[in-house]
Amino acid sequence: MLRRMFRRNREMMTGYMFVLPWILGFLLFMAYPIYFSLNMSFNKVIISSNGIKKDFIRWNNFKYAFLSDPKYVEELLMFIKSVVFMIPIVIVFSLLVALLINQPIRFKGFFRAIFFLPVVITSGQVVKELFAQGAASVPIVERYGIIDYLQNNLDPSWSEPIISIIQQLIVILWYSGVQILIFLAGLQKVNSQIYEAASIDGASPWEIFWKITLPSIKPFILVNIIYTVVDLFTNSLNNVIDLIKVNMFQIDTGFGYATALAWIYFMVIFTILLVVVLVFGRNDDYNPRKAGR
């Protein structure tokens, strides 16, 4: 009894020893900065040569962001809208590619390597450069006047995000590298006997996809949606993040306001993730329509 307690105690201590670096790092480089930035977001912060001067102004930074800032809310909404469009594109595309690669084909490794390439070599700056030089849009799309059509027939608040997506289509597809791999791993874990049994019973490939493949990779869909949301929101390729940086070095707004913007941004990410988990994570009874979206 005593010995077992001793052993458990010892296991505990060894565990803490291994995790200790992370605890220290978390306190120093996460917890303290989080506390500090929360604090700052309620202050007007002026940094001068004498040090940091803080003025407690309650919710004013947040109020200003929502009520007076000429750009922030607009950019944020715009970005959220485009993310709402991008997520299904990325998920469906990566599932499609994963299904294709999972077929018994040659050069499997080669194709996999191509689709993963952008994950490795695209930094935000390189992608920006490619945008600027017009290398990121599919040339065929523009030729057929899809953009004009959208511009004429949709409300600008919706047509703008859609058009920006079309113009950045390749780059959006580029964000599918990791998701493709995750889907591939998921597909390979499906028991091949189930497929055989289904096809003996006369199920068509189409039915097999909806009734077997999709339900069995449903957990991977959730993982991929979460990954996509985090990836899209935390890469530096969006105007909201630029805006935060710009406000950081502006004298009239400053660090306090910039951190308030960052916190609003975080709350948005958090809410979206929560919604995703609630919608896709909870119901275990399978609904193909929902998962297909």
Partner: peptide
């Protein structure tokens, strides 16, 4: 949590640190 928090939230305090 550290995975989903954007760098922008902690960037400024870290910069000062």
């Amino acid at each position: 949590f550290t995975f989903i928090i954007p760098v922008q939230v902690v960037m400024i305090p870290l910069f000062l640190l």
